[in-house]
């Protein structure tokens, strides 16, 4: 059965899929990782820092999964807690202060659903990022490199451009959770993946993303250098366009872009 949705979900979760640090290693020169939200702690599910891409200093922010069990525990399987979102916001504000563009790399199965996360305001942390990113006075380019699940992805995903790798997915909920709620079983995840229309092609049609980033023939995991080069090139090309705009225009266009998202009927 033809099911691109489920196929992309599996590719996005491929154990050898390149993660945020694989990209940073290849495209960011002099990367200085910066730690902590200055309130509670350092969430290692989100990596933040500054470095050079081409000739340009960027704030780079990305969710990080682990490859081994040990590293996955350290990275919480790429599921951030509130302090991760607050650290990201701290770095974005630093970027705004020094007029540096922001690059975010999205790869998360969702924000962490835990007791501590709720105590420390997961909802508030994500909401605040959406609010601040909408009007941050520097260019923001977001790239979905793997999984883009729910508010946990969006929490670092508001910007002037949203790019999506060919074999990544982005939706309001994971296919598994969607299946458990709407089908009352975990077994319909393939059907849910198809129904959610979560592929890059679907999202381009829904006018949510701006472009699809081509991956090597068999997927990004087959050639890290090649996908990193492509991502770098697409990010720099987009930045060149965004730098032509004044700050006011940049923010105005960003808000306008989000204003237009959605489909509805209006009878007059």
């Amino acid at each position: 059965m033809d099911n691109k949705g489920w196929e992309k979900v599996q590719l996005a979760r491929h154990p050898k899929r390149p993660y945020t640090l694989d990209y940073i290693e290849r495209i960011v020169k002099d990367f200085k990782e910066l730690h902590g939200d200055r309130f509670f702690g350092d969430d290692e599910a989100i990596i933040t820092g500054f470095g050079k891409i081409g000739n340009e200093t960027f704030a780079v922010i990305g969710q990080q999964k682990g490859r081994s069990t040990k590293e996955n525990i350290r990275r919480n399987f790429g599921m951030p807690n509130p302090e991760g979102y607050r650290k990201a916001l701290r770095i974005m504000k630093l970027a705004a202060k020094f007029k540096k563009p922001v690059l975010t790399l999205i790869d998360t199965p969702g924000a962490f659903p835990g007791i501590g996360a709720e105590e420390r305001g997961q909802a508030e942390a994500i909401a605040k990022n959406l609010f601040e990113m909408a009007v941050l006075p520097v260019p923001i380019i977001c790239v979905i490199i793997g999984e883009g699940a729910s508010g946990g992805a969006l929490g670092i995903g508001v910007g002037d451009r949203l790019l999506m790798l060919e074999n990544s997915w982005f939706s309001v909920i994971s296919p598994e959770s969607c299946s458990s709620i709407l089908w009352r079983t975990w077994d319909k995840k393939e059907i849910a993946a198809k129904a959610l229309k979560l592929t890059a092609e679907d999202l381009l049609e829904q006018k949510i993303i701006d472009e699809i980033v081509k991956e090597p023939t068999d997927g990004a995991h087959e050639n890290y250098d090649e996908i990193a080069r492509t991502v770098k090139e697409r990010v720099l090309d987009n930045l060149k366009e965004l730098k032509k705009l004044s700050t006011d225009k940049l923010i105005e266009k960003r808000i306008e872009k989000y204003s237009k998202i959605g489909f509805y009927e209006e009878q007059t």
Partner: peptide, 15 residues
């Protein structure tokens, strides 16, 4: 409404 539903969070927050 899939990701269209998700994006309404960004839209209302931007406003």
């Amino acid at each position: 409404e899939g990701a269209l539903s998700l994006m309404q969070m960004a839209k209302t927050s931007a406003k």
